[in-house]
């Protein structure tokens, strides 16, 4: 077995176990920290797929940015402001039925799809290609995404600010 295959299974195991810990942990901060291992291992999967730029963007954006804000928020609520976050299981039976349904559909889709496997993808200069694509063919979606983000940013700043009477 080539060691990339072993690596894949190790990463997959980390992802599944840590994702389960995110869901089943009673402590919210523990869940947030478990998410770190999930996201980091996912970037490892991207590396195995030879998508180096996406792997690093995953680390930069999700691990280095979003996750830190998330942990920050969770920590603030429990320790600094003394707000008890409730972690309880509600509506166990309906959610169980619903999620088992989704899992069945997903497994069915995964096994019935005919996957196109391409070998020997060229991993050289992915950034150049992505950059050219972003500023030519996909310029409009790119700009729209940035405007949406800007609107969200301004909106959250508006909400966070206290309105003076």
């Amino acid at each position: 077995m080539p060691y990339t295959t072993i690596l894949f299974y190790v990463l997959a195991l980390i992802i599944v176990v840590s994702a389960a810990m995110v869901v089943f942990n009673k402590n919210v901060v523990h869940s947030a920290f478990s998410l770190f291992f999930t996201l980091f291992a996912i970037s490892g999967i991207y590396v195995l797929l030879k998508a180096d730029f996406i792997a690093l963007t995953q680390i930069m954006v999700y691990v280095g940015g979003i996750l830190i804000l998330l942990i920050f928020g969770v920590m603030m609520t429990t320790k600094v402001t003394n707000v008890e976050l409730k972690t309880k299981n509600l509506n166990t039976i309906p959610s169980l039925v619903f999620s088992i349904g989704i899992v069945t559909i997903l497994i069915f889709v995964i096994f019935s799809t005919k996957w196109n496997i391409r070998l020997g993808l060229d991993s050289e200069e992915t950034v150049t290609q992505i950059g050219i694509m972003l500023l030519s063919k996909y310029l409009l979606p790119f700009e729209i995404a940035s405007i949406v983000l800007l609107v969200a940013l301004i909106g959250s700043a508006m909400f966070a600010r206290r309105i003076k009477d």
């Binding site: 180096d52 730029f53 690093l56 930069m60 280095g64 950034v127």
Partner: peptide, 14 residues
Amino acid sequence: MNLGLFYFFAITSL
């Protein structure tokens, strides 16, 4: 690697 500098900034932010 081609993305050396980007890698450095990403990984040290961990």
